[in-house]
Amino acid sequence: MLTGTYRPGTSALHRAGAGRKLLGLLVFSTVLVAWRSPLTVLLCFAVLIAGYAAAGLGLRTLAAQVWSLRWIILVLLPFQWWTGGWRAAVAIAGTLVLAVAAAGLVSLTTRVSGVLEVTTRILQPARRIGIDPDRVALLLALTIRAVPVVAGTFHEVRDARRARGLERSTRALVTPLVVRTIRHADRVGDALAARGVDD
């Protein structure tokens, strides 16, 4: 969720407000957890497929959202089957997969700025206890933005380590990655100050 994977579009889901979609996600996940059963999983799966289709996104996109769960599912499914039977296995693994896929659908159809606006609105009461909602929203945005930057740094550092023949050295990976990430954070701080964030 909130990975900045927005796919532009004009569907009703794209046009719906971020707040409504997040509420929908909450209801969807609650139903999955509260009435955990293979039937609920099946019905929610149908709803989800309809949602992806309505947004103009195919099954391949849906699969891509949950592909990273494959190893967890591979362990979880047989374990749950063994301890609780096939119904529990399908219900638990299905709940996990469908919740992630639903969050993916919200991410794919919602601009991050929309989610940040909702976050800012929801957190307004927190001003009374000294929390600045704009700051929290900015923090979220920076976190999302940092993911591809740190991933890029990781790949560069890994290549550099390989070029030096140090493939097995953890220190040759972790030290430059941490140093470069901190230096990047420093530069981002400067850039934010230059753009008047603290003003």
Binding site: V112, L138, I144, R145, H184, R187, V188
Partner: peptide, 8 residues
């Protein structure tokens, strides 16, 4: 990269 704050 250090200056771009938002995802899009």
């Amino acid at each position: 990269d250090a200056q771009i704050v938002m995802p899009t």
